[in-house]
């Protein structure tokens, strides 16, 4: 694993060195090219701004108002009746939060890790879940928004399905391995 850590540490300096050097050797005006590409950064940032704000505001309100907690509590008896292991109910808020908000789900995962202990079943499951799935809903709205797509087709369904599989796989592997 430390090998991977080393790669991560060297990746950016490596790219920052190799790309300009190769480009220079291929007779490209490196500085001017860089600047003309960098120009796009500002435009893209401004273009995604309204989507970011729209989503962040709606999600913050949903979380801070306690609506998310309420949803988790309402889902608990339903899931228990469907055969959910009672030991797993603590993970429900994280499972709902994960696709919506990265900082929100990190907060929930951190709380779970502290409350149940990092080496408890719930602590390990929360860690695995936080690391293995992404903020699907958020990524979709921002990425699609940045190029003006209004109709997502089956993208949301697909992303949430992958999250669900990730959740089930995380529960299974954490139960098996530890």
């Amino acid at each position: 694993m430390s090998a991977l850590g080393e790669i991560s540490r060297w990746a950016i300096p490596f790219l920052l060195l190799v790309i300009p050097v190769v480009a220079f050797l291929r007779k490209i005006p490196v500085y001017e090219s860089f600047v003309s590409g960098a120009e796009e950064g500002f435009k893209t940032g401004v273009r995604i701004l309204p989507f970011l704000i729209g989503m962040l505001v709606a999600m913050r309100i949903f979380i801070d108002s306690g609506a998310l907690e309420l949803l988790g509590r309402a889902l608990r008896p339903v899931l228990l009746r469907l055969g959910l292991d009672p030991n797993l109910t603590a993970i429900i808020p994280l499972a709902i939060m994960r696709p919506l908000s990265g900082s929100g789900s990190l907060g929930v995962a951190t709380q779970l890790i502290y409350r149940y202990g990092p080496d408890s079943f719930i602590g390990r499951l929360a860690s695995t879940l936080q690391g293995s799935t992404d903020t699907t809903f958020f990524v979709l709205t921002v990425y699609f928004g940045s190029v003006g797509i209004r109709k997502y087709r089956y993208a949301l369904k697909l992303g949430l399905l992958a999250d669900l599989v990730g959740l089930l796989a995380a529960i299974w592997i954490v139960t098996k391995v530890f």
Partner: peptide
């Protein structure tokens, strides 16, 4: 916070898109 996130992104994005342009042209 939306503005903060977007502005932070602008800096990093300009850096990478600039580098990406170089990589493309090379």
């Amino acid at each position: 916070m939306g503005v903060e996130v977007a502005f932070e992104l602008i800096g990093v994005m300009s850096l990478w898109l600039g580098l990406m342009r170089l990589a493309e042209e090379a």
